[in-house]
């Protein structure tokens, strides 16, 4: 890998971004012109560094490049500080904002729904971040909630969209918490409710929890794995907000794309310092 700081001309440069999420690790390779060259998604598991390395290698392979071709790699996500080959880090709040800003102009509210948390990030008309909210510690409103509900419905999370699409009756899950929702769901099954209707109810619960996090006016963009893989979530948001979420390309890898953009900025604009490393709290 060429040393960070030895800036080449923008067109010839190459950058990587890694998003080390609690559930999946995503890697994206871009060119100096921000063109998408390759990406990969792998399960994070317990070895953050290993998963980051694997995702990075796969993304490089997809781009047809070797590590040494890259000018800089930046990391984001909850495991961002565990990636020794990253030249710098930014939070996922920053990287999702960067990723969206690349595709969407004007004041925007971003809804990012990941495996372990949901975030609402507000950008002003210039695309600067002005506030963020993160969901409370419970899994409600996140991908983990859908995993738990899929388990109770005797299916898997990837088959939940297909199941929910067959709904015929509107059912509500009212509980705040994932454990309570689980027992509520079991009660509904006992009461004769159909799994397809309950799968939709699970999506409605996620959407409701997120809508409670902030006021949504103006344009709203959606990112993250749940937005990428569960189309019913987008339909439900559209129903509540009166307009569809703007979904940028590759919504699941958008954080990694944002990290690659940060890497690019660090070299081409020489303006972005690596975020100071925060203390490792026990």
């Amino acid at each position: 890998m060429s040393a960070a700081g030895s800036a080449k001309g923008g067109a010839n440069t190459l950058f990587g971004g890694i998003d080390s999420g609690s559930w999946n690790t995503k890697a994206v390779i871009i060119g100096g012109d921000c063109r998408w060259l390759g990406s990969a998604v792998v399960r994070t598991g317990a070895d953050l560094e290993g998963a980051a390395g694997a995702a990075f290698e796969l993304a490089l392979r997809a781009a047809g490049l070797g590590r040494e071709a890259l000018d800089a790699v930046w990391a984001t996500g909850f495991g961002r500080r565990s990636i020794p080959f990253a030249h710098g880090t930014r939070t996922e709040l920053d990287c999702h904002a960067r990723g969206v800003r690349h595709h969407v102009q004007g004041a925007t509210t971003i809804i990012d729904i990941g495996g372990q948390d949901a975030k609402v990030i507000r950008l002003d008309a210039e695309g600067r971040r002005i506030s963020h909210r993160m969901n409370r510690k419970c899994a409600a409103g996140t991908g983990s909630f859908l995993d738990e509900m899929a388990l109770r419905l005797d299916t898997s999370t990837d088959r939940l969209p297909e199941l929910a699409a067959k709904f015929s009756e509107e059912v509500e899950l009212g509980s705040f918490c994932t454990v309570f929702s689980g027992t509520e769901l079991l009660g509904a099954i006992r009461g004769g409710k159909r799994p397809a209707d309950l799968a939709r109810a699970a999506y409605k619960s996620v959407v409701r929890r997120v809508l409670e996090m902030d006021v949504f006016d103006g344009q709203v963009a959606g990112t993250g794995g749940v937005v990428a893989h569960h189309p019913m979530v987008l339909d439900l948001f559209a129903q509540h907000l009166g307009a569809r979420l703007i979904v940028p390309p590759h919504p699941q890898e958008l954080g990694a794309f944002g990290a690659a953009l940060a890497a690019r900025e660090s070299i081409l604009n020489q303006g972005l310092e690596p975020a100071p490393e925060a203390a490792d709290l026990p």
């Binding site: 909850f78 709040l93 600067r128 975020a275 925060a278």
Partner: peptide
């Protein structure tokens, strides 16, 4: 207290202030 979530939130806030 979730150290991980709070750290991201605080670091993200400091990044936000730095980018103003």
């Amino acid at each position: 207290y979730s150290a991980e979530q709070s750290r991201t939130s605080i670091e993200g806030f400091v990044e936000q202030l730095a980018d103003r």
